[in-house]
């Protein structure tokens, strides 16, 4: 449906730049929570990248990967939140 026209190039470059910036936060992040937020953001970026690639490659099947990634990212974040809470002896009530 679409070939790789200039708006898609611009979008790819912007998302690639965002990946680099989020990796900077992932490496530097002073606390574990900062890194978890960066990981969460990485999964949103991946979902956006998959959506873009669905447009460029004209293969709507790739969209399923984005749906599954959204689900897995949520589970991972919840697991990390429980880990952070338990690490400090906090009563986990979730």
């Amino acid at each position: 449906m679409l070939s790789l026209t200039w708006p898609l190039w611009v979008a790819f470059v912007a998302i690639g730049l965002s990946f680099i910036l989020v990796f900077v936060r992932l490496v530097r992040g002073p606390s574990l929570s900062d890194r978890v937020v960066a990981l969460d953001m990485l999964s949103y970026l991946s979902i956006g990248l998959i959506a873009l690639w669905t447009l460029v490659s004209q293969q709507p099947a790739y969209l399923d990967a984005a749906i599954v990634l959204a689900l897995i990212a949520f589970l991972a974040t919840v697991a990390f939140a429980r880990y952070i809470a338990r690490q400090h002896g906090e009563e986990v009530t979730l």
Binding site: S33, Y44, L71, A73, F80, A81, H88, L94
Partner: peptide, 18 residues
């Protein structure tokens, strides 16, 4: 899911004193 995930991370980090 995004607001729920952010809420849980923020809550856990705050109560952990981080």
């Amino acid at each position: 899911t995004a607001p729920v995930a952010a809420h849980m991370i923020g809550r856990a980090a705050y109560y952990a004193g981080g």
